[in-house]
Design a protein around this nucleic acid. Structure first.
Lengths: 341, 341
DNA sequence: TTGTATGCGTTATCAG
DNA sequence: CTGATAACGCATACAA
């Protein structure tokens, strides 16, 4: 546990003032060749490493960017964090992650922690805290928000059009001849979930198909709830030939329920998800879904933040949901008696 | 961007010295009731938030714990990070994550960053840097390592017995009557991969089964490589009735390859992975594998670190690999002609 | 170009 | 119990 070398010691060793050392370190001013050499020699000789804390305190900024996520371990956010990290790489800024667990109080606490650590900026991914809180945060540091649309923060929010995505998915199923499409919705308290439900309804309506409440069950965006919902769907009395799960994770759960029931996908039932998680390429069969390019989104968020930090506007681009048709959906044969009941 | 309130301002507002405010904040010494009240009033009135940077600099410690991971977005590490975060919750310590991407240089850089931020301790997950470097790190801060076994750091390393896990998996297949078991190995540069291969060999040997080099292909622990390997396995001339992929992710890839070939799992081919990622419960069929309880391991790592930080020994427990038998493996019927060729 | 003096916001030492 | 005063390690006006 060797105590670390200070700048002052380097200065002494090199026979110059500490200001000079500081200047060399930061490239603030020109320094004579001789002294620069001496200092550099001293630095390597003493193996000097600047103390970031002291530097930050003196400078008044930390080069840290707080990132509030809702679940580090989820494939969705995980990928996004990787994107953010990548987008920040080489910029000198370091992302500091905190997890809010989709819980308003924890999110607030996490934001406080981040702020008390004097992060120069903040990126918020999803979450359940009121918009107002974020508006306050935005008054203190540059802020970019993903997954929410806050009117008071124009150009600082990035959000996919969930309704449109759900619409595309549902229409895709309808075009494949499906008329009775079940929907495993996300938690109704969740904005994205409501929007996706809404897109589902719109597509049905547009096609002149009836909305059947019994075919809509609510999950919590996790696999287990998809499993439960799909199972219950089979216990219900309404028939269906396709299931639209409000996210990929619930689709995975539903997939297992179907497997357990001996129902084939897509032969008997077509299945679609939402998000296009990396693993959706590898499910059996690969899942038709709507793509949220999480990694790229992370990069975009990071870059926009860097832009904001350099004084420009964040200028977040719009994201169009993109249908990814794979093998879990198939044209409904009209002879099909397989779509149960 | 309101400038933040300082402790000194609180002191002035409350009519006391800044030392007193500091004492109240830290509970260092007793303070008269009257002054305490005044200070607390001032704090809420001014909405004072302590500057963590200044505090850390003065105290000489940050209450931050550096965590070096190799891929934030991987389900394996992601879950572990969540465990670490959970295990640290309420302790006052904050984890700071950095990603080494399984790349020695990046790992070194990340460690330097973490150290320059004066993290009070360090948790290293996997990685490709030489042991020596970690030993040096351990000389500077309390260190705990996961996924490696460094003799010079006794009791500070946590590692599952990979060889034993692979052995269990292979023996399970053998007990199910499989005699020709293919293995999709991890990168041979990777210690875990070598150990798993070794466990596979041991089980074969013990059962008197021949080791067939053509049935062992090397992947890179990612899904795609599992897909490629499984596909190539079918192009080879050696037959097999089971595949042991060195981790779940490659098993997923292999699963897809089998699906594409129209080969059923487990009816035609049994498949096993390694790690028991959360999603392995939801693959079709659910995957037989060996469990690495990532989340719990994360918690363990965090708790051990807290123990170390409080002066005790880390005292890391041993982890026994645990076989999780699900539906991707089945007893081989001797009439089976299905195991191809 | 270089050095001196001062400040960044807290904590810690030391009198009182 | 409380208040000056000196660190903490570095950056930066201000002089020279």
């Amino acid at each position: 546990m060797e105590s670390s070398v200070t700048l002052a010691e380097v200065a002494r060793q090199a026979g110059v003032s500490s200001s000079t050392v500081s200047r060399i370190l930061n490239g603030t001013t020109n320094v004579s060749h001789a002294k620069r050499e001496a200092v550099e020699r001293a630095i390597t000789a003493l193996n000097y490493k600047p103390n970031v804390l002291a530097r930050n305190l003196a400078r008044g900024r930390t080069m840290n960017i707080g990132v509030l996520t809702q679940d580090i371990s989820s494939p969705f956010y995980g990928d996004m964090l990787r994107g953010i990290e990548q987008g920040l790489a080489g910029s000198g800024y370091l992302p500091i992650f905190a997890d809010g667990h989709w819980h308003a109080e924890e999110e607030n606490a996490a934001i406080d922690v981040l702020l008390s650590h004097k992060t120069d900026a903040m990126i918020v991914l999803g979450g359940a805290i009121p918009d107002q809180r974020l508006i306050e945060v935005a008054a203190q540091v540059p802020l970019i928000v993903f997954g929410r649309d806050i009117h008071q923060l124009p150009g600082q929010c990035l959000k996919i059009d969930n309704e449109q995505g759900a619409y595309l998915l549902t229409r895709h199923l309808i075009e494949f001849g499906h008329q009775r499409i079940a929907h495993i919705a996300g938690p109704s308290a969740h904005r994205d979930a409501r929007d996706r439900l809404s897109g589902y309804k719109t597509a049905l309506e547009e096609a002149g198909l009836p909305f059947i409440p019994e075919l809509v069950l609510e999950g919590d965006f996790l696999e287990t709830s998809g499993f439960v919902a799909a199972t219950r769907l089979f216990e219900g009395r309404e028939m269906f030939s396709a299931i639209f799960a409000a996210n990929d994770q619930m689709a995975y759960g539903a997939r297992l329920a179907l497997y357990r029931k001996g129902v084939r996908v897509p032969d008997d039932i077509s299945l679609v998800g939402f998000d296009d998680l990396p693993s959706s390429t590898y499910t059996t069969p690969p899942l038709t879904t709507v793509r949220q390019p999480t990694y790229e989104l992370g990069i975009t968020l990071a870059q926009s933040m860097l832009r904001m930090l350099s004084g420009e506007r964040a200028n977040l681009p719009d994201i169009k949901p993109q249908l990814v048709i794979r093998e879990s959906t198939v044209m409904l044969r009209y002879s099909a008696s397989t779509h149960r009941r």
